[in-house]
Design a protein around this nucleic acid. Structure first.
Lengths: 260, 260
DNA sequence: CGATTCCTTGAGGCATCTCAAGGCAAGTGG
DNA sequence: CCACTTGCCTTGAGATGCCTCAAGGAATCG
């Protein structure tokens, strides 16, 4: 019912038949300067001349079908990916099958920065719905950054942002209870929806209860019960994956129960 | 008794009186090329010519006394810090007083990379024992990196490494039980001691039970009980902060109970 | 030598997990 | 079009791992 709320207007430059999902290079290339995500994505904060230089790279665009992986843990690191549309989850696997979701990525967000450390991706990225990404060849980007202190700084800042994001997730996992965790999660989604021009109070979650649970360090049953508890408290209305926040302040207070 | 094991040979280039703790610049400067930590620290992976260029920056050295902060959450970001000796903890505070320790840093490790995102430090760093650091002015480093793709790459790799480190901490906080968490923590310390040329099986912890607990997302009593449980299982011997791992394989198995 | 800090251990409580059952929606094959 | 499967979500009931509260010991410090 509200699926449109989560996703930017679909891009129809190519037909589904054009491109096999495994293709590493897409027939169509993309320029940052004309991209509708330029204020959220890589070029954010760059001046006109630097964006023009980015355009020189002409990033390959690629479709990823729901359930397919953009890359797997251990894959050779070659690209950084920018989400154009759709939602991804990043996750690590333990040998016994346990998995930890380390993040959810929406349009304009970057994927794959963890691969730089060792030259291999440290996590896997899977599309939670049909998606489209820009594949940014790291070697080229790096070359380009050598000539621009600004671009260099933007890249560093994006990596630092990832570090800060993980800090708060650690705070969440380390010292919050179930209600605080879910409230923090929903408020975060809400903010990111708002930044993308969608309603911050009504949206469609693309991830399952189990994925939310893994991300928040709780079992799927607890996620479900906590949703029900919020609903009973009249903080929100849930119907499966559709969420409407009816009391944003109340939810913020639930998040700050102990944070104050 | 084994305090020496954790700390590199003390550096005695200046007396304690030389330098007030709050001084932001130290009278003595340091060069990477002659530093005994060059294989662990910033210059790791750089060629001779790049290291020589780093030398041009002449990093200010600074002492930090036990319990003193190197920087606080919210401080303006100007420097990246390299630990020369001693141990630090990084932590965030919640308004209600809860704190989350986000990491412990040993000689050769970097501090402050989280400040790049917003220009303000997102966490505080406190010395767990008298320590010495190099203050690396980010603006200068950044300038220097503009002329060297290699240096740039090294910085990016260090940031990526931080991201990967936090990934595994998330795994730990999100899906491991108390024994697995403490085992993972001790094995990590063990490896870092080994990398610094110290015994990987016998060392002195610089952090309190409460700090370990915050880092691992458990209460200090649980940390203490888990230490006692490991001791009962003959995996290690603990006496307050002194730890001797008597069965490294067994401890590894405790870590992999479910990881396999 | 009292004050303080940190660690250990015990006992009981509780938040979350585990196990289990059932509902709903979408997909599939006859 | 219907029976069946499958995946996902919800809810209940009981189990349990960790937390909370409390007391006491050991080391450090002024």
């Amino acid at each position: 019912m509200h699926t449109a709320a989560l996703q930017p207007a679909p891009l129809r430059f190519m037909t589904t038949a054009t491109l096999a999902r495994t293709a590493s290079t897409a027939p169509l290339k993309t320029q940052c300067s004309t991209c509708h995500l330029k204020d959220l994505c890589l070029p954010c904060g760059l001046t006109g001349s630097d964006v023009q230089r980015l355009d020189g790279l002409m990033f390959a665009r690629r479709r990823v079908k729901e359930g397919d992986a953009l890359y797997h843990e251990g894959d050779k690191f070659q690209f950084i990916y920018a989400v154009r549309s759709g939602t991804f989850k990043s996750h690590l696997a333990l040998k016994d099958g346990r998995e930890q979701v380390t993040g959810f990525q929406m349009a304009g967000e970057l994927l794959g920065l963890d691969g730089l450390a060792s030259g291999k991706h440290a996590s896997s990225a899977v599309a939670l719905e049909d998606a489209e990404i820009c594949a940014i060849p790291y070697a080229h980007l790096s070359e380009l950054a050598a000539g621009s202190a600004d671009l260099q700084h933007v890249i560093s800042r994006l990596m630092s942002r990832e570090i800060v994001r993980e800090h708060s997730l650690m705070m969440l996992l380390g010292s919050m209870n179930a209600e605080e965790r879910l409230a923090a999660f929903l408020l975060n989604i809400s903010q990111r929806m708002k930044a993308r021009g969608y309603s911050p109070t009504e949206f469609h979650l693309r991830m399952s209860r189990a994925e939310i649970g893994s991300y928040l360090g709780m079992k799927l049953e607890t996620v479900s019960r906590t949703f029900s508890a919020f609903q009973a408290q009249r903080l929100l209305e849930v119907d499966k994956k559709h969420v409407r926040i009816s009391n944003l302040d109340g939810l913020t207070r639930a998040f700050e129960t102990r944070v104050q």
